[in-house]
Amino acid sequence: MNHAARHTTFIKQQAAALGFDHCGIAQAVQLEDDARRLERWLQQGMHGGMQYMENYFDLRIDPRKLVPGAQSVITLLLNYYPETLQRPDAPQIAKYAYGADYHEVIRARLNQLLAKMQTEIGHIAGRGFIDSAPVLERSWAQRSGLGWIGKNGNIIHKQAGSFFFIATLIVDIPLQYDGPVANHCGNCTRCLDACPTGALAAPGVVDGSRCISYLTIELKDLLIPESFAGQMQNWAFGCDICQDVCPWNRFARPHQQEAFKPLPVILNLSTREWEDMSEEAFRKLFKHSAIKRSKHRGLQRNLQFLKLKG
């Protein structure tokens, strides 16, 4: 077994030991096709108020500019599908935010993986990313054979669905590379048909400015545009509609991650209790939760908007 093969085997074994569900590896190259798609997406204003998406374009499409000398992009998936769901009559929270903030959990594991690699292999220059830097995670997941980009814009794993966090580790050593898998969406349009705001502009193209996740989290305006009144389907933080209706998620299985165990308040609070929550209580309850991104005022804005009827 050559060095690249041995190192690849070691990395995938360590990734599994750290709790990652899937690991795929691709060669670090410039993503030319993705660059054209990203440019069109930005030109059409589908990023809404997410102006940061316009920054660091060159870094987004070429990992070698993020990590000088980069040769390999390691992509890792971590399941977050919960065993227990919220009460259906309460304001809905996206499943990824049920437990601890995934940024904190996964960043620590990426650091551990890189440290293990450096101990076993030797000096490695590398950087780990989890939804916090200009990295096209879904493109790398697809190139790494971990799934295909579905019509809802999510990575879909044929045996496990799409309820996964995607983490990326870019390193400057050669490894054995996995090949992409075929797209298995076929003629299915369930996600496109189910999106209440028309955010799925075309198969695989998400108009972020219309997405409920954007409207309830990323949009920082004091008010959500009234044109979306009556279309939010009780989602107060994020949205899972396009994943919930996807046939491939019949293969989703509950995660085994203690850190992602649902916070009791998320499962049990009534609409009135959400609405009556003080800012102090919000900060205390969601100190280590992704929900803190919306801030108390943002969540209250969302709850009030849900009362509007279109």
Rank of each mutant, 00 (worst) to 15 (best):
residue 176 Q to C: 13
residue 129 F to A: 11
residue 91 P to L: 06
residue 67 V to F: 07
residue 112 Q to S: 14
residue 84 T to Y: 12
residue 189 T to E: 10
residue 282 F to E: 11
residue 273 E to I: 04
residue 129 F to M: 06
residue 298 G to Q: 01
residue 253 R to V: 13
residue 252 A to W: 03
residue 211 C to D: 02
residue 110 L to H: 11
residue 203 P to C: 08
residue 207 D to P: 13
residue 264 P to E: 04
residue 245 V to R: 01
residue 274 W to M: 05
residue 274 W to K: 02
residue 79 N to I: 13
residue 131 D to W: 05
residue 236 A to C: 03
residue 282 F to V: 12
residue 131 D to G: 02
residue 256 Q to H: 03
residue 213 S to T: 05
residue 258 E to S: 01
residue 75 T to K: 03
residue 209 S to Y: 10
residue 53 M to D: 12
residue 206 V to K: 08
residue 249 N to C: 10
residue 155 I to D: 02
residue 33 D to A: 15
residue 17 A to G: 11
residue 8 T to E: 03
residue 54 E to K: 08
residue 36 R to Q: 15
residue 303 L to N: 07
residue 82 P to Y: 09
residue 59 L to V: 00
residue 173 I to R: 05
residue 241 I to F: 01
residue 273 E to C: 07
residue 29 V to N: 14
residue 85 L to Y: 08
residue 38 L to M: 14
residue 46 M to C: 08
residue 301 R to S: 14
residue 9 T to N: 08
residue 169 L to V: 00
residue 123 H to D: 14
residue 16 A to Y: 11
residue 293 R to C: 06
residue 125 A to D: 15
residue 64 R to K: 13
residue 107 R to H: 15
residue 147 G to K: 01
residue 128 G to N: 01
residue 170 I to N: 14
residue 87 R to Q: 14
residue 17 A to L: 15
residue 55 N to M: 06
residue 251 F to G: 00
residue 101 D to K: 04
residue 161 G to T: 05
residue 271 T to H: 09
residue 153 G to Y: 00
residue 67 V to H: 04
residue 183 N to R: 02
residue 189 T to N: 04
residue 215 L to K: 06
residue 295 K to A: 15
residue 4 A to F: 07
residue 39 E to K: 14
residue 156 I to P: 03
residue 187 N to L: 09
residue 131 D to M: 02
residue 185 C to P: 10
residue 68 P to M: 01
residue 200 L to E: 13
residue 91 P to R: 03
residue 168 T to V: 12
residue 160 A to H: 12
residue 7 H to V: 13
residue 25 I to N: 14
residue 293 R to N: 04
residue 293 R to M: 02
residue 173 I to Q: 08
residue 16 A to K: 15
residue 137 E to A: 12
residue 129 F to W: 04
residue 243 Q to S: 06
residue 190 R to M: 08
residue 191 C to V: 03
residue 49 G to E: 10
residue 224 I to G: 12
residue 230 G to W: 01
residue 192 L to C: 00
residue 217 I to W: 07
residue 59 L to E: 07
residue 46 M to R: 14
residue 82 P to S: 13
residue 105 V to F: 06
residue 115 A to N: 10
residue 191 C to G: 07
residue 295 K to H: 14
residue 119 T to A: 10
residue 100 A to E: 09
residue 111 N to F: 05
residue 172 D to P: 09
residue 42 L to C: 08
residue 109 R to S: 10
residue 259 A to D: 09
residue 123 H to I: 14
